[in-house]
Design a protein around this nucleic acid. Structure first.
Lengths: 215, 215
DNA sequence: ATTTATTAATGAATATTTTCTTTAATCGAA
DNA sequence: TTCGATTAAAGAAAATATTCATTAATAAAT
């Protein structure tokens, strides 16, 4: 009975997962202020969200809070980082060293969150052979030869028209998780996860909300 | 009666808004293939989504489809780009020229989606005074003097501990929309829109889904 | 002209997510 | 010890989003 109460194979709702890094950031600031415990009530008040949502979100991890005290800051940070996969360092390949790919190569924050880009692939002879921020740019054909490496994450930043094809190659090459920055919806078998992160989609939401408050 | 049938002041659901740029990308590829019309059925089939969801999403714009024909590709592209605000070019300030801010300065794709970074602000004397990708990096104190400019969008890429403070300055300086790349939940009055785009949140979702299919 | 198949649009039903409510635990004060 | 205040947790209710089912329109085929 202890393992049947989790519905749907214990899948964690995406909204909850997306909120967790926010809690983590908040907790790190709390730690800096030498707080030993934080209650869900305080987290909620400071962040402007619903208190029960905080406890519900955190309940997906292994943490348990103490009544009338809250959660221990240090252990909650540890538990969250572990749960979110920010502890172990995954190596990643970048596909498409154009403008956006280039941009990601400049962001060293990724390292702190468990992702390290070890090589990039492109077809443009103007960039192949170069090194950006210490990461070598190879020709896509080289990817074939590197299949045996223990690399499961691929970042997709190619132009839209190549997105589906390249994604397919990635999956065939053993990539298990594709971080898709193109606005194209990738269709693959279900042994490969696709995470869409279209910056422009977020921009669209912001523009729309700005117009809404204007009138 | 023609204007009371829209519930809740005609607010467009965020999931719908986020899907629209995907439709747009799909349509641009269709246009390249010289397709004159596309039906919601085909869009849905190609993208692997529900057909009624497509029509429902598109119904928030002014477009109307022709029965048994579909939507005219060119006009739908125009309507969507206009609706999403990708047509007019908004000028933007960047706050925080660190690793991630630097990365965004390298992404020229933003221009195509209606956003042009015209200046960046930082406090680090090592970067202030420099120019990255043609964009000057100024000291934050300079922001005060530039209030009169017609700039409504601000991109927030400062370290977490400064996020709330800088956001407040931005709002006071006339910024109407903050594109927040920090994992901090910003609290401001409601004359300023905050759009959260935490890359690491997406990374967390991907890691979690990868683990789910693994076991 | 008539039929058939395909489609957009609309409203209903389902599923999901968020918020509200209740309960039980326990720390600190009286 | 006893009481009151604060809290996590769990379940119920409400809000939201997605999917399903139906309808009406119409282009193409017969």
């Amino acid at each position: 009975m202890s393992s049947e109460n989790k519905k749907k194979e214990g899948i964690v709702p995406e909204p909850s997962l997306r909120r967790m890094p926010c809690y983590l950031a908040y907790l790190k600031l709390a730690k800096r202020r030498s707080q030993e415990y934080v209650s869900s009530t305080h987290i909620a008040r400071d962040m402007g969200v619903d208190p029960t949502q905080v406890t519900k979100d955190l309940s997906y991890t292994s943490i348990v809070g103490k009544t009338r005290v809250g959660y221990e800051v240090n252990t909650l940070i540890d538990v969250l980082e572990d749960f979110l996969g920010f502890r172990k360092l995954d190596k990643a390949y970048l596909f498409g060293a154009g403008s956006l790919g280039n941009a990601l190569l400049h962001d060293h924050g990724l390292d702190q969150y468990g992702l390290k880009i070890v090589a990039a692939f492109d077809i443009d002879p103007k960039v192949v052979g170069k090194t950006i921020e210490g990461v070598p740019i190879l020709h896509v054909s080289e990817f074939e030869k590197m299949k045996d490496e223990n690399i499961e994450v691929g970042i997709l930043t190619v132009p839209a028209e190549f997105a589906q094809d390249v994604a397919q190659q990635m999956a065939e090459g053993g990539i298990k998780g594709i971080w898709n920055f193109t606005p194209i919806r990738i269709r693959l078998g279900d042994n490969c996860v696709v995470q869409d992160t279209s910056l422009y989609a977020h921009l669209a939401v912001m523009f729309n909300r700005m117009n809404s408050i204007k009138k």
